[in-house]
Every structure is written in structure tokens, then in C-alpha cells.
């Protein structure tokens, strides 16, 4: 019975999307249009940061009527996204599948042999880059990077850095920090960014490299203090927080939020989705979200995006090498 309900909702979604769509879609793409609902594969499980963002895109597309067919999010988070990557590869030539990516797009094929070369995939659009900051608990009294480094050194190797799973973004940033200051911290992996932030506030770890959106609530309440941002420029949401570069340490790391398509997607379809995401990037909802979550809007498409992906992959290969050499 619930099954019928599900189908009914999908039908209702289709109908409402189509109704609102009307004028916009005709202006958007004269030629190719999706013929059936589009699968939006998510490289992570339900409820995480990547999932939330993908669903935000879905709702913006639907609310603004940017597609004549609904987007159906499908979570394939198995094996740090290995499952999703294999799935996309097996869908070669399919015009009704797109995938929301994060940095495991590079690291997973590098770390495990899953027979996927991301150079084969079709780039669609990079929506934003998520940023990383170094956080400590307000109770610690630490307010600057120098104090932080001194405090870590005083602990020997006992300083606890909390982060997401080993080999994922947080552990890479941690390795970069350790390399830059010649320090060694005890890295404690947790299930997700929210849990990491909570363990910082509960004093179970000493520092984290959370994304702004994960620590924002605690920051507003004055319980978490950002020391330094690992971004090229200062973040508008944190104007008083210096970048690592300003302080003379070249640590810059970002998490890309992009969409890619299977190898060999027809060009008209690629154009359609690219135009659709361009509209999304100009929508009010997206702009508000970007500002509130301290994301860096970084819209990029086509060959430039592919070049960026490949450059990032090389960069990650190097970071992973240093981590493996170090352990």
C-alpha cells in the first residue's frame, strides 16, 4: 500500500514540477529534454552533508521548475562511493543519470582498485567548493594559530584531532597541518561531521577541521572558536578569521560539490543539464544557502571542469602518498 503511496507522490511530483515548469523549460532548452525522471545518484548515505546538499539541489530544481521531469535522488554510499562510481560507469551512454560528487570522487578510485577512471566520466557542473576551518573548544582559551601549535607541541602526540573516516577529507587536511608545523596529533575518526563537532564541544577531542555548516550552530552560541581558514581568501562569513596563507603556511584545501554524468552521455543531454545547473547557481535559494554555509561559489563546466578534476586527482594522489609514507 505504501508502494502505491510512493508512486502517487512521484506522480504528484511530476505533475507539480511540470505545471510550474511551463515557461521556464521552454526557454531553457529548445532541443533535448529528459523523457523520464532523472536519477540523481549520491555518493554517500542518507542524511550526510553530501546527501543534504543533493536534496537541496533537487528541491531548487523542482521549486523553480528547471526541469520538465523530476529528479530522483538515489543513495549509493557503499565503499566510500565505490558503489556509485561503478554504477555510473555501468550506465555508459545513459542520458537520464547524473551524479552528485564530493572528494571521494578522486580518493576512492585512488585508494581501492574498483576499475573506474574518472577521466572517462562526463563533467557537468561544479556548483561550489566547501571550506575547511580549524576549530577548538572555546573553553580551551586558544585564540590564535601560534597558541594552537604551542598547545599541540606541549601535548607530545596526545593532542586529539577529531575528524571523519580515515582517508577522507578531514584526515587529509590533518595530514597537511601536521606536515606544515612538524607536529603529530592523535587522529580520532568519527562517523560524520556532526558527530565530530559534538565531540569537540563535549571536550572528547581537542580540535577539528569541520566544514563551517557543521560547526555553525556552536560557533553562533560561542562554544566553538575558528582559528584559521584553509581557503585562498578570507571567508565572508568569518571576516576575522585569517587564512593559513596570510600566516605564511600554504595549506589550502576545499571539498568540491559537483555533478558528473556517465561516460558517453549524448552532448545535447549534457548541454541540457549544464544549463539547468547554471540556472540553479543563479537562484535566490542557492545564493542564500552559499552565504549561510560559507561555501565558495565556484561555477565551472565543460573541459575546464574536467581539467580541474584531473588536477585535483593528482593533488590527492600526492597527499595520500605522504600519509601512507608517514604511517
Amino acid at each position: 500500500m505504501a508502494h502505491t503511496f510512493t508512486r502517487r507522490v512521484v506522480l504528484a511530483m511530476t505533475a507539480s514540477a511540470a505545471m510550474v515548469a511551463g515557461s521556464v523549460t521552454t526557454a531553457l532548452a529548445e532541443g533535448w529534454k529528459p523523457q523520464k525522471p532523472v536519477e540523481m545518484v549520491i555518493m554517500a548515505g542518507q542524511g550526510g552533508g553530501a546527501d543534504r546538499l543533493a536534496r537541496l539541489f533537487q528541491s531548487i530544481i523542482q521549486k523553480e521548475g528547471l526541469s520538465n521531469m523530476p529528479m530522483l535522488p538515489v543513495n549509493k554510499g557503499g565503499g566510500s562511493g565505490a558503489e556509485a562510481l561503478r554504477y555510473l560507469k555501468d550506465k555508459s551512454g545513459d542520458a537520464h543519470v547524473i551524479m552528485a560528487t564530493l572528494n571521494s570522487y578522486y580518493t576512492t578510485p585512488l585508494r581501492t582498485d574498483i576499475g573506474v577512471d574518472i577521466a572517462e566520466f562526463t563533467p557537468v557542473a561544479r556548483m561550489a567548493e566547501d571550506t575547511f576551518l580549524l576549530w577548538v573548544n572555546a573553553d580551551s582559551g586558544i585564540t590564535t594559530l601560534d597558541e594552537y601549535v604551542a598547545a599541540v607541541k606541549a601535548e607530545g602526540t596526545g593532542w586529539k584531532m577529531g575528524g571523519t573516516g580515515t582517508g577522507q577529507e578531514d584526515s587529509l587536511v590533518t595530514a597537511m597541518i601536521e606536515g606544515a608545523f612538524d607536529i603529530k596529533m592523535t587522529y580520532v575518526p568519527f562517523q560524520g561531521g556532526g558527530e565530530v563537532a559534538k565531540n569537540l564541544i563535549g571536550n572528547h577531542v581537542n580540535s577539528t577541521v569541520n566544514n563551517p555548516s557543521e560547526a555553525l550552530g556552536f560557533y553562533k552560541a560561542g562554544k566553538a572558536v575558528p582559528l584559521v581558514a584553509f581557503t585562498p581568501e578570507r571567508l565572508a562569513a568569518f571576516p576575522d578569521v585569517p587564512t593559513a596563507r596570510e600566516l605564511g603556511h600554504d595549506i589550502v584545501y576545499a571539498m568540491q560539490r559537483s555533478f558528473v554524468a556517465p561516460p558517453g552521455m549524448p552532448q545535447e543531454a549534457v548541454d541540457y543539464y549544464t544549463a539547468m545547473f547554471e540556472k540553479v547557481s543563479q537562484s535566490e535559494e542557492w545564493k542564500t544557502y552559499v552565504a549561510e554555509s560559507a561555501l565558495m561559489p565556484a561555477f565551472l563546466t565543460g573541459d575546464d571542469l574536467q581539467a580541474y578534476f584531473l588536477a585535483e586527482r593528482d593533488k590527492h594522489a600526492k597527499i595520500l602518498e605522504t600519509i601512507e609514507a608517514g604511517s
Binding site: 548515505g45 542518507q46 542524511g47 550526510g48 546527501d51 543534504r52 536534496r55 556532526g194
Partner: peptide
């Protein structure tokens, strides 16, 4: 997991 979605 459900509250994670609500949070989203």
C-alpha cells in the same frame, strides 16, 4: 538517519 534528513 531520519533526524539527519529532518536536519537537512
Amino acid at each position: 538517519p531520519t533526524t539527519a534528513l529532518l536536519l537537512g
